[in-house]
Structure formats: structure tokens, C-alpha cells
Design a protein around this nucleic acid. Structure first.
Length: 545
RNA sequence: GCUCUCGUAGCUCAAACGGAUAGAGCAACAGACUUCUAAUCUGUAGGUUAUAGGUUCGAGUCCUAUCGAGAGCGCCA
């Protein structure tokens, strides 16, 4: 907490005098009369010098101008109430307060669509969480690079090419829609026909060996597929810095394997190459026919990224089912002595239907993301037919994003369109409405708010201000754990407090000019504040609804 | 079979990684509109945190067992 930073540091230094080295455990209070609590002393109840520590704490707290009152409760919980007299200046500096001192370079690997296959519901969380982590990290001053990391190589691609060869389809005349139909058919055939499987394996090997004719076909597939993906992502308001994929690192794999062989880091096992590290299950590096696997390309991708050397940390926003894969990947990177970097698997659970079953279409196929978008668009349109399409479009994306980010990413959740588009409750519609209200009265008032002072006259105003100040705590929490849901829940809280404040009095009809100005100023602070939150969650505010 | 998640109010989910009396939303019930769009707000009710033990000053959170649900387990990505 920036406002209290000096105070907290002073308390921390005091603890050090007693050989206690820890950060001040500072939290939002659960009690009604106080704003914050400090929990450090609880665990030192039986410390021989606890009386002396408490006295020092008490003396430091009573000297602070920023504390209105404090108390030592049972078990030495410390409760604080903030002094809000000079609060305007604090809020003015909101944006600056969030900057980090040491900027980190963060690579976020998310999205991960396959070519030849449309985005489906399973991609939604990776996209939402990834974008939010990007925006959040940018907000605090980290340098972020995003890589969509296409699945544009290997068996699935070989299957499509084999399928086209078998059915004498000219790949160069394919449309994106036709390609989308071919994908499931070729996957089925691969499963059910030994002959087709063999053919696809041959193509896959040719692909790995960069044989010209196959590469030409692959390039064309990739091109039409990416064009189609970009269209969909534009609708959903996503963009990426890098469009690398598994194919980008194919040339690095052979030298990587040769060098690993020399170092004795890999060895043959039933014809396949496995890592010589003791692991259960054994970590497979290549197939027995010499072709490459998921892990092979992911290893080479890390080498590639190390080579361009523009990141300190990599976040892989990929679903929880791939946990074992990333455990193996990170373990192997260490065993293979790749240059040291931080790697985190930001895992997440599945989106299920209202019954809690995997999200499928009526005929059992995977639900396309655009189809989910269309359903939601129509649903919102039905609720209010007078809104323009651009606004409904933004509301649709708000619903698809906000409802998704509201839940802890590790939890599986049920997609309930009726609930998520509800007007009241923790929904994208509710938070949009709150900010529309704020925007409206500011525009109508036509009062210049520059250099005006904020005064607090009601409890609802105080609650709103405290909540606005807490933004940085939620940002910190969301970034520390790569969990945007803290911020999403906070957004509801602060919007609700604004609605209470708004409801309390008709601001524009107030006769007292100073009071009116102060309330408008608070409205402006609210708006500035939640604009940051909207942006951090990947949401676009609407102007009217 | 082995490994990993998870089980919190009628329902959907939180709980800042061991801290105070476990919080929200929905649904239910009772209230507030000649409005800055009430698309809102106020209030009430709802819990032995699956069960049984254990560790701790303190456990939804850590450990053990049982029951239940889901996921993953070398030649798919």
C-alpha cells in the first residue's frame, strides 16, 4: 500500500531489531469499523519481548498522520482506520503508484490454436487469462511479449495433407471453411484406418525433413488458416506480437538432439529417444521412427527463445490437463542444462455446460468460439433491441470475458448464458452499466473538475474511496499469483459501491455547488480507476446501453 | 493399477497460500421509483467447510485414513 508504505517499512525495521525478519502482513480488514489489519504480532504472542514490540508498534502507529485510529484486538491483531483528510492527492497518483521498480521481460505463450481447426470453447480461458496477464503486467511496467504459439506442425498437419492426397483435393483451392470440415474427417480416419495412419506417418516424417512438395502444401494450409484465425481473434479483441509455432523451430531440433546425444543426456529405449534422467514415467524425446513430439518442439522453442534472449520469465497459459507435460518440460530443461530462466505453467480448469459436462454442440462436436459469441450476441440483443450492434458486440465480449475471469482459473466452471447476461449480480452487464452511469452524469454536468478538492460527507462516499484505494492490492495479488479473478471480483465490489453512492442522492440536482463538485470528482476518480481495471481484464467500456 | 486435482449456503462461486465471527452473487422473502435509464438500491433468512482422526496458540487451508467427483499416465498435440 503506497500511502502507508513508509509506515509499513518503519514497522518492518522495528521487527528487525528483535531479530524478526519478515514483511508486514497487511490486509484489508474484515471488521466494520476498520479498513486494514496487520497480523504479524499474532504469532509472537509468546515472544519474550512481545510487550516491548507492541509498545513500539503502538508508538509508531500513533505518530502517523495517515492513521485516524488503531487498536490492538484480542491475540494482537492490529486494526487500522485510514485518515482520509488529504485523500485527493493519493487518488490522483493512482496510475503512478502501480509501477514496479525493476521491470521484468515476460513472454506469455497462450492461445495455442491448431491450424486447420477453428477456435473452440476450449481456447476461451487461455485467451482471456493470457490477455489479462499481458495487460496487467504492462500496467505495472513490465515488458511483455505475447506468442500465440500455433499448433502448425506434426501429425495433425500430416493428417490433413494425407487426407487431401487420398481424396484428390487440391489444397491450393481450399477455403478456410472446407479446411475446417476436413480436419475432423482426417482425424477420424487416422484413428480407424491403419493404412491411412501409415500414410500420414510418412507425410509427417517428410514434413520433419522439410521435403519441398510437402512443405509447399503445408505453407498454403498455414496461410489460409492464419487468415481465418486472425478474423476470429479480431472479433474477440485479441492480438499477438508473435505468430510463431511449432514449425518455427523445426530446424533447431536435429542439432539439439545431436548435441544431447553427445552429452549422454538422451539414449535409445525401444527405438525411441528418452531422456537419461531418472523419471517416472520416462520422458520421451523422439518417436521410434525418429519423428518429433510435443515435448521435442517445446524444448526447441525454448532454445529459440533463449537465442533471441528477450525474456526473463515465460508464462504458459495452458489447461491443467497438460500439467504432466509442463512438469516434464521444465524438469528436462534443467537436466539438459539450458540457460536458466523462470518458467511457469499458468494452468486452468475446463468450461463445462450447465450440467457440468464438457461443452459440446447438440451433435456432440466441439463448440466453436464464434458460435458461442453469436449465441451470446443474440441473447443480449433480445434483452434490449434498441442498442446498436457495436455496443452489443462490446457487451458480448464483456460477458464472454468477465464471466470467465471471475472464477479462480483452477476451478472448472459451468457456462450459463442466462446467468452471465443477467442485469443484476456479478456480470459483465452490471459492471458496464455502472460505468455508463458514471460517464453520463459527468458528461451532463459540464463542470470543470480541475484543481477541485474532494470532501467526504457520507459513509457510502468513504466506502467507495477506500475501495478505490485498494485497487493496487488487488493488482498485486492478481500478478503475484497470475490470477485475474481477484481483480474481476474487485471490479464488481467497486461498481456496487458506486451504485450505492449514486443511488443515495441525485447529484446533478444538488444546490450546494461544492458538494456537487466533490461528488462529481469522486465519480471521475471512480471512472478513471475502473478504466484501468477494465483494461487490465481485457474489457472495453461502452458509452451507452 | 499408478499419479495429480477437487468436495464450502438450495444453486454458482470467493476466502490475499496457517489468522479474528467462513464471504459474494443468484434464487426466496420483505421494502424503496412523477429517476442523474429502478438494467438500481436497502433489509431478512440460509453453514458442524464430504466424513473420521491428527499437528498448531489458531485449520476450509497442512498431515493420515475413508467416501465421492474429475483429469492425466513414453511413440496425439
Amino acid at each position: 500500500m503506497k500511502i502507508l508504505q513508509e509506515l509499513l517499512s518503519e514497522l518492518e525495521e522495528n521487527l528487525q531489531k528483535y531479530e524478526i525478519f519478515e514483511e508486514i502482513d497487511f490486509k484489508i480488514s474484515k471488521t466494520a469499523d476498520f479498513d486494514y489489519q496487520i497480523n504479524n504480532l499474532v504469532k509472537y504472542q509468546n515472544h519474550e519481548k512481545i510487550n516491548s514490540i507492541s509498545e513500539n508498534f503502538s508508538s509508531i502507529l500513533s505518530q502517523s498522520n495517515n492513521i485516524e485510529k488503531f487498536e490492538f484486538a484480542d491475540n494482537l491483531f492490529i486494526n487500522l482506520k485510514l485518515n482520509l483528510n488529504k485523500i485527493s492527492s493519493f487518488i490522483n497518483n493512482l496510475e503512478e503508484t502501480n509501477l514496479v521498480q525493476d521491470s521484468k521481460r515476460i513472454l506469455i505463450d497462450y492461445g495455442g490454436p491448431n491450424i486447420g481447426k477453428p477456435l473452440h470453447v476450449g481456447h476461451l480461458r487461455s485467451l482471456n487469462i493470457g490477455r489479462s496477464l499481458k495487460k496487467l503486467n504492462e500496467l505495472i511496467g513490465n515488458k511483455v511479449t505475447t506468442d500465440i504459439h500455433l499448433g502448425d506442425w506434426g501429425m495433425p498437419v500430416a493428417q490433413i495433407i494425407s487426407f487431401c492426397e487420398l481424396n484428390e483435393i487440391d489444397i491450393k483451392s481450399l477455403s478456410a471453411d472446407q479446411l475446417i470440415d476436413i480436419y475432423p474427417q482426417s482425424a477420424d480416419l487416422y484413428k480407424n484406418s491403419e493404412e491411412f495412419k501409415k500414410q500420414a506417418q510418412i507425410i509427417n516424417k517428410k514434413l520433419n525433413q522439410s521435403e519441398k512438395e510437402v512443405i509447399n502444401k503445408w505453407e498454403f494450409l498455414r496461410k489460409i488458416s492464419i487468415e481465418d484465425l486472425k478474423k476470429t481473434l479480431k472479433i474477440l479483441n485479441h492480438d499477438f506480437d508473435l505468430w510463431h509455432g511449432e514449425s518455427s523451430v523445426n530446424h533447431l531440433i536435429e542439432p539439439m538432439i545431436e548435441s544431447l546425444k553427445k552429452e549422454g543426456k538422451v539414449d535409445y529405449d525401444e527405438g525411441a529417444l528418452v531422456s537419461t534422467e531418472d523419471a517416472d514415467p520416462k520422458i520421451l524425446i523422439t518417436k521410434s521412427d525418429g519423428s518429433y513430439l510435443y515435448l521435442t518442439t517445446d524444448l526447441a522453442t525454448i532454445l529459440d527463445r533463449l537465442d533471441s534472449n528477450d525474456f526473463d520469465t515465460t508464462l504458459y497459459v495452458v489447461d491443467s490437463r497438460q500439467k504432466l507435460h509442463f512438469e516434464q518440460l521444465f524438469k528436462t530443461v534443467e537436466y539438459f542444462n539450458f540457460e536458466k530462466r523462470d518458467f511457469t505453467h499458468v494452468d486452468f480448469g475446463t468450461i463445462n455446460d450447465e450440467e457440468g459436462k464438457p461443452f459440446k454442440t447438440r451433435d456432440g462436436g466441439t463448440k466453436k468460439l464464434l458460435s458461442l459469441y453469436d449465441d451470446t450476441f443474440k441473447y443480449i440483443n433480445k434483452i434490449n433491441e434498441n442498442i446498436d450492434n457495436e455496443t452489443i458486440h462490446k457487451l458480448t465480449n464483456t460477458v464472454l470475458t468477465y464471466s470467465d475471469l471471475l472464477t479462480n482459473r483452477k476451478t472448472d466452471y459451468k457456462f450459463n448464458i442466462k446467468k452471465f447476461t443477467n442485469i443484476s449480480g456479478k456480470t459483465g452487464i452490471y459492471i458496464q452499466y455502472a460505468q455508463v452511469r458514471a460517464k453520463k452524469i459527468l458528461n451532463k454536468s459540464k463542470i470543470n473538475l480541475d484543481n477541485k478538492e474532494l470532501s467526504i460527507s457520507t459513509i457510502s462516499e468513504r466506502n467507495l474511496i477506500i475501495s478505490l484505494l485498494n485497487l493496487e492490492l488487488y493488482i498485486k495479488q492478481s500478478i503475484t499469483f497470475n490470477e485475474p479473478h481477484h481483480l474481476a471480483n474487485y471490479l464488481y465490489e467497486v461498481c456496487n459501491l458506486f451504485n450505492v453512492f449514486y443511488q443515495e442522492e441525485n447529484i446533478l440536482s444538488l444546490d450546494n455547488h461544492e458538494l456537487k463538485t466533490s461528488k462529481l470528482l469522486l465519480t471521475k476518480y471512480f471512472l478513471d480507476n475502473i478504466n484501468l481495471v477494465f483494461n487490465s481484464l481485457g474489457l472495453e467500456p461502452v458509452d451507452e446501453m
